[in-house]
């Protein structure tokens, strides 16, 4: 598991440039699937069908990550950037970033020594952030980067005590890695004739730049027309602020089953059954403590076509959208176990 997660999180694939990670995933899953295909905007769908006809379920995890794009290169050779997705801007200054062509840069902003009183303790707005690549002027910079180039945080994977993993995009890729494990399980279940669902595993694109309900995964749902859908994504963790009453999930507390978020009220039966399944199989789960959390891809999927009963499963992730997200293997295992049981259950 560690090796796969490390491999996945080390690939740079910001929203709109997911090809590199798609290739890695495809290589991992191809031997276990009936088919693997891409739709026109890049969502990858892997199919595993049992012999017997049964209901169609769509399971999705997004494969993109937050990042940035070069919008301008100034006369001093600095790259000005736009952020792709809700990048954690409070911890950007001094961060190492990597452009997809391999160029390395450092995020730079006004030094702390010259901040006005009003600026102290505040994050620098995106238009005051730039990336230093060491070039002496615009012409020299053009040898390394050009306008429209993509980049992400520098990949740096760290394994800590108690199977705790840290690195850029670790949360999202933990979901991807869980899906890959699941595909292997589904393949085994198919062989053992215990698989109860026609599985469409979707690795979606452009999730991080989705605004309102416009998620790219909608296209995949439209083609698949599933009877049910399950969205696997990260869940924000905020368990250290004891004085805060309503915070996110606990890291290491098991999968997060949400009854609702801002974009979706998850299907009542699927949610109740999921809780029961966890209780029955002894799978660690938790409810998010505040249902007003920003919604994910479920928002687009459950309203697709004639409607799709949808369930959300979250892997608790610390420092979401920063250069060092943190997840625990315990939660990933719980997610794999839950999804496996779900696929072979009658739910």
């Amino acid at each position: 598991m560690t090796e796969l997660l490390q491999k996945l999180s080390s690939v740079c694939a910001p929203s709109g440039k997911e090809k590199a990670v798609a290739e890695v995933i495809e290589k991992e899953i191809a031997p276990y699937c009936d088919s693997v295909s891409y739709d026109k905007i890049g969502n990858m769908t892997a199919v595993i069908k049992p012999r017997k006809k049964c209901e169609k379920v769509m399971l999705c995890a997004h494969m993109d990550e937050v990042g940035f794009m070069v919008k301008n290169i100034d006369s001093d050779g600095r790259a000005h950037i736009v952020l792709l997705g809700a990048v954690e801007t409070r911890t950007l200054s001094g961060r190492k970033v990597r452009f997809l062509n391999g160029t390395t840069g450092i995020v730079t902003t006004k030094p702390i020594h010259v901040l006005s009183e009003a600026e102290v303790g505040r994050t620098s707005p995106a238009d005051k952030i730039f990336v230093e690549i060491g070039a002496k002027d615009k012409t020299e910079a053009a040898q390394y980067i050009k306008i429209g180039d993509f980049g992400t945080f520098e990949p740096k994977f760290t394994e800590m005590a108690n199977e705790t993993y840290a690195g850029k995009a670790v949360g999202g890729r933990a979901c991807v890695s869980t899906m890959i494990e699941l595909i292997k399980e589904a393949h085994a279940a198919k062989k053992a004739k215990t698989l109860k669902k026609e599985c469409y595993f979707v690795f979606s694109v452009k999730r991080e730049i989705a605004i309102r309900s416009f998620f790219a995964v909608e296209t995949a749902a439209f083609h698949i027309e599933p009877n049910k859908a399950l969205v696997l994504d990260t869940a924000p963790v905020c368990d250290f602020l004891k004085e805060e009453l309503m915070t996110g999930a606990k890291c290491g507390g098991g999968i997060v089953l949400a009854p609702a978020d801002i974009r979706t009220i998850y299907n009542r039966e699927l949610f109740a059954d999921a809780v029961k399944l966890c209780e029955k199989k002894g799978i660690a789960y938790q409810n998010p403590t505040f249902a007003d959390l920003p919604g994910g891809e479920g928002g687009a999927i459950h309203q697709n076509g004639g409607g799709v009963p949808t369930l959300s499963v979250g892997i608790p992730t610390r420092n979401l959208h920063s250069g060092a997200e943190i997840v625990k293997a315990h939660d990933m295992r719980a997610a794999t176990a839950f999804l496996r049981e779900w696929l072979i259950s009658d739910q």
Binding site: L245, M246, P259, A260, N287, P288, T289, F290, A291
Partner: peptide
């Protein structure tokens, strides 16, 4: 409203619908 959190004291936090 939807129940989002139950406090140790038994009071129930709710999220608006």
């Amino acid at each position: 409203f939807m129940v989002s959190y139950i406090e140790d004291s038994g009071f129930i936090r709710v999220s608006r619908v």
